[in-house]
Computed example of a mutant assay.
Amino acid sequence: MTPDQILIFMLPVCDFSLEESQFFSLEELDELWLERKVTKYKLPNFMKDINDDLLVDNVNNWIVMREESPKSINKRTKTNSMKVICTRCGKTDVTCEAWINPNKIETKEALDHFSDESFYYGTCKICDDSVELTDVDEIRQRIDKELALFMEETGREPQVAVCRVTFCNGNESMDETKIRLSHGSNGDDEYFYYCNGAHALKSLCEKGMEDFIITEIYRFEAE
C-alpha cells in the first residue's frame, strides 16, 4: 500500500450522521464527491494542507479514511472509458509512470499498480518531451455529471462553466477560468472564451482549432 492509495473524505456534520459516515463504501463516497457533497483528498495532499496551515475543518466535518487497493484501481481502469492524450499535440502516443514487477515482466501480472496522478503527467513520443496529460473521456463524463447536478438543483440551463484550461504551446494552465455557454464578444474580460452550449464545451476537452484544452471542470453557474 502506498500513501496515494489512502483516501480521506470530509463529510459535513450537518448533512451526515456519524453512523452514515462510517458505513459508506468507497464507491458511494466517490459518488458523493462527484456530486460535490463531500471533500476528497489523497493522504499526502491532506497532510500537506495541514502542514501548510490551510483550513482543514475537522470540527464541522466527519473525517473518513478509505483504502483504494491496486486491484480496485486496475479494475476501474479496465471498465471505464479512457482516452489519455498529450495536451500539446492531442495524440494518444503517450507513456506515464506505473509500478512494474520485474519478476513478472513477461506476464499479464507485470503491471502492479499506478496512481491517479500517473495520468496527469507523462512523456509524449510525438513531442519527444515531458508533457501534461488529460483523460478526455473522464473530463467529459465530469461535465455531464456537473451539468445534471446543476439542472437538478436549479431547474434551468447554466450560462457559465468554470474550468481549468491548459495551453497547447506548453504546460501552462489557468484555474477557475470562466467559459460562457453562448456566443458573444470576447471583448468582455470576465469570460475567457465563448462556446455554443455544453456539447461545444465538451469538444474543447481535446485538441482542435483552439490553442487550449479543458483539463478540469469545477462547476456550472447561472451567470
Results as ranks from 00 to 15, higher is better:
Ile213Glu: 05
Phe24Val: 03
Asn186Leu: 07
Glu97Pro: 02
Gly184Trp: 00
Gly122Thr: 12
Glu35Arg: 11
Thr77Ile: 08
Arg88Met: 01
Asp137Arg: 01
His183Met: 12
Arg76Asp: 05
Gly187Pro: 07
Phe46Pro: 06
Glu172Gln: 08
Cys168Leu: 06
Ser81Ala: 13
Met82Trp: 09
Glu190Lys: 15
Glu19Ala: 12
Glu223Met: 00
Ile100Gln: 10
Leu133Tyr: 06
Gly197Ile: 06
Asp30Met: 04
Ile179Thr: 02
Gly90Tyr: 09
Ser81Cys: 05
Thr177His: 10
Leu133Gly: 00
Lys145Ile: 09
Val131His: 01
Glu216Leu: 09
Asn74Thr: 13
Ile179Gln: 01
Lys37Met: 04
Trp62Ser: 01
Asn60Pro: 03
Ser72Cys: 11
Arg36Ala: 09
Asn103Ser: 14
Gly184Lys: 00
Lys108Gln: 13
Thr134Arg: 02
Phe16His: 07
Glu210Asn: 11
Lys178Asp: 10
Leu181Cys: 05
Gln5Arg: 00
Lys207Trp: 07
Ile217Met: 09
Ser130Tyr: 15
Phe114Thr: 05
Leu18Gln: 15
Ala200Gln: 01
Thr177Ile: 08
Met47Cys: 14
Ser173Gly: 06
Asp93Met: 13
Leu204Val: 03
Ile73His: 10
Thr107Tyr: 01
Leu54Gly: 06
Asn45Thr: 05
Asp57Ala: 07
Gly187Asn: 12
Asn60Met: 04
Val162Gln: 03
Trp99Gln: 15
Gly208Glu: 02
Met82Cys: 13
Trp99Met: 14
Cys127His: 08
Arg88Cys: 14
Ile179Lys: 05
